[in-house]
Simulated scan of single mutants.
Amino acid sequence: MQPEPLSGPLAAQALQQFRAGSPLVHCMTNDVVQTFTANVLLALGASPAMVIDKEEAAQFSARADALLINLGTLTQESLRAMRAAVLSARCADKPWLLDPVAVGGLTLRTEFARELLALRPTAIRGNASEIMALAGESGGGRGVDSTIEVCEALPAARSLAKTWGTVVAVSGETDYLTDGERAISVHGGHPIMTRVVGTGCALSAVMAACCALPGSVLTNAAAACAWMARAGEHAEAKSAGPGSFIPAFLDALWHLNQESLI
């Protein structure tokens, strides 16, 4: 199964739907990236909300258009709130995305991530090491960083997608997404995106929002990757380094349009 490149017109169409719908995204994400994640969603036209109390999280996830579960700064308290939010989202038939940050290297998050798999995430996004670890395979990981190439994780991604009926995205120099049958590749971005905190976590939030759009979850999730990659390229060209990259990146997302995607 060779991945097919995402077409520009499909990415542009998804962006138009995204901005028209302005999805409300319940972000249960790590403490380090909350502000950046919210700003990325706002720049693209979505509405972010960070609701973390267990009772409120369960109530809100049923009202939001999509839910993001990011395990970056997992605690026992946040674990219980995340579980409640996922169960509520499932009962309300709302899409949710799992970002298994640093799974494989630490016991609590690894066991919890595998528990969440049984609750059938609409999509999963991680780096190659995280996806391989989530699939029960050995992979090289160093905290949130991957030490293996995306291509090495493709069989694990396909297996996860088929087993759990989900879309799996493996992030890297080229992003790879699969539903177990089809596969899409998205190339682009810039290495500087790995030198600022939060681009991967923010991509997960955007991808979660895209799961609420009409049409193919696989195609819409791939569109999220394309938007972030293209904005990263535009921002790098206008910035002098990581410090100036972040505002340039938010501006690039704000100005993203059909012409820049096709």
Rank of each mutant, 00 (worst) to 15 (best):
Y176H: 13
R182N: 14
W164F: 15
K162M: 05
S171V: 02
L177S: 09
G165S: 07
S185C: 14
Y176A: 12
T178S: 15
A169L: 14
V186F: 02
D175G: 09
S185F: 01
G165R: 07
L160R: 06
G189D: 04
S185D: 05
T174N: 10
I184C: 07
R182M: 07
T166W: 00
A157W: 01
P191D: 14
A157C: 10
A156H: 03
G165A: 03
T178K: 13
G172L: 09
S185W: 03
E173R: 14
V168P: 08
R182G: 04
G180H: 12
I192V: 13
I184N: 09
L160V: 06
V170I: 09
V186N: 03
G188I: 01
E173A: 15
A156I: 05
A161D: 04
V170W: 03
Y176P: 00
A169N: 11
L160K: 07
M193G: 08
L177V: 05
W164D: 02
A157F: 06
T178N: 12
T166Q: 02
D179V: 09
A161F: 04
H187Y: 00
D179L: 07
Y176V: 14
E173S: 13
S185N: 07
G165F: 01
W164C: 07
I184H: 09
S185K: 14
G189I: 09
M193H: 09
I192Q: 11
E173Y: 02
P191S: 15
L177F: 02
V167C: 12
A169H: 05
M193A: 12
I184G: 06
I192C: 03
T166R: 04
V170Q: 08
T163I: 01
G188T: 05
G172W: 03
A156Q: 03
D179E: 06
G180C: 10
R182D: 13
P191K: 15
T178R: 13
A169W: 01
L177T: 07
V186G: 06
I192K: 04
D179K: 08
E173D: 12
T163F: 00
G189Y: 08
D175Q: 05
R158L: 05
L160W: 01
A183P: 09
L177K: 03
T166C: 11
A161V: 09
R158T: 14
E181D: 14
G180F: 03
Y176K: 04
A183C: 13
V186D: 07
A156G: 07
T174Y: 00
A156S: 15
A169K: 03
T166K: 04
A157V: 10
P191W: 13
L160Q: 04
G188R: 08
A183G: 15
G180D: 10
V167K: 11
P191M: 14
T163N: 11
A183Q: 14
E173P: 00
T163S: 13
M193I: 08
V170E: 04
A157H: 11
A183Y: 12
T178Y: 06
K162C: 05
V170S: 04
R182Q: 15
A156Y: 02
A161G: 10
R182P: 00
G188P: 00
I184Q: 08
W164E: 08
K162S: 13
A169Q: 10
G189N: 12
I192A: 06
S171P: 00
T166F: 01
E181K: 15
H190S: 11
G172M: 08
D179M: 08
I192M: 13
M193S: 07
A156V: 06
S159M: 03
E181F: 10
H190T: 13
H190I: 10
